[in-house]
Design a binder for these strands. Sequence first.
RNA 1: GUGGGAAUAGCUCAACUGGCAGAGCACCGGACUGUGGCUCCGACGGUUGCGGGUUCGAUUCCCGUUUCCCACCCCA
Length: 425
Amino acid sequence: MIKSVRGTRDLLPPETALWNFVESAVRDVFRAYNFQEIRTPIFEETALFARSVGEETDIVAKEMYTWEDRGRAASEKGQSLTLRPEATAGIVRAYIEHKLGDRGLNKLYCIGPMFRRERPQKGRYRQFYQIDAEVIGPPSAGSESPARDAEILEMLATLLDRLGITDWDLELNSVGCANDRAAFNEALRKALEPVVGRMCVDCQRRAVTNPLRVFDCKVPEDQPIIEKLPRISQFLDEPCRQHFEKVQAIVQAVGVPFTLNDRLVRGLDYYTRTAFEFTHGALGAQNAILGGGRYDGLSESLGGPAAPGIGFAIGEDRLVMSLKESAEGVVRKPDVYIAPLGAGTNPEAARLARELRHHDLVVELGDESFRLKKSFEVATKAGAKYILIVGENEVKADAFALKNLATGEQVSVPRADLPRQIGQN
RNA sequence: GUGGGAAUAGCUCAACUGGCAGAGCACCGGACUGUGGCUCCGACGGUUGCGGGUUCGAUUCCCGUUUCCCACCCCA
């Protein structure tokens, strides 16, 4: 038997209703902030991700689905292509390619699948779904303003509340600009050198490969050492420091609670200044439900105009997972089950179904070969509110037996009154 | 990529130290010929993930492999 490949999965009903619920809430909320949808290809030239996400990141170094395309002629070599591991790079590429800044398209969102070749785990798949939004534009459009950072954060708080996720926590930090980070990294290496020998084996490795990750260490014995390490906040230059303070002031003013976390670092090369993460308990090691930050130099590094931006990605798989227990009854059950009864009643039943569906009712249609008992069982199992019996007597009278399956109340309803009768409650 | 756990009916899970592979739910039929849910009865359902080994005999023990889960790495 052929099965779905490692790290991929089928999304089945009724869970798909939950996905649609999430996505339509997202579209509603984003619309209120004047975001518009963009759909970019799910594969791009490999170079795009290498240059934006960063050659040295794990994503690019070992987690991408990359292949060599066929050339135009059989003998010709094709270009290297990659399934997108994240959305920002493609959106910024489209922004540059279509000069979206000149068209005033500064607020974009995208919902779709991403691909990373990681070891699968709960809430971590090789094809996973992200909801992504970006504010990007020329500095003259205010895209560099702390007001944009704050607007994004407030929008996310609104979205999570709207989805019924109440126990979230917003963690906020600034990772500064490139210069700040270089100075900080240097200081961090120096500070680690004399103490790293007393730390856990993981930290000893991190100190060499990725010193920033030392801050993620959970070993209790290491905490006193980590507490004394330099923080990025001490290395922010004056513009970055002011920017971050203004972001906090606005977020505070609109009443969105947050925690400063100067251990919060981002893995992708292009991030600058504001970095944030919304977390949610009960998701195991994958407690981050969404994350994002500013990427002021990304457009230029891809050969585009100056276009500061800030964006985020929501892990939709995890979001849906955290919604699962709380969200019941998202599926719309049939308003009515039509039960044709006896040979030759199918056509009349089909006519009735068509009429009722045109009235925006959800209609399930049985078959004249079913015994009435079976029709009742099927209707009940489907969760229909009403069952409509289309038998010989009814067709002759042009009035149909309509029974409320919850109350057991049954009445004869003239054809013309059916939509109104069924549409009630 | 590393370490650990798991895999048995559509679903959730049993099966003692190696001895006929089972239950609940679901599904289908009947009791009940144009009236559901409840109840009762019956039927269906399996290459025990896959491949090899040990054994008279393997769901059980061993080796390999695949997938899922947990934790790393990393990240949304």
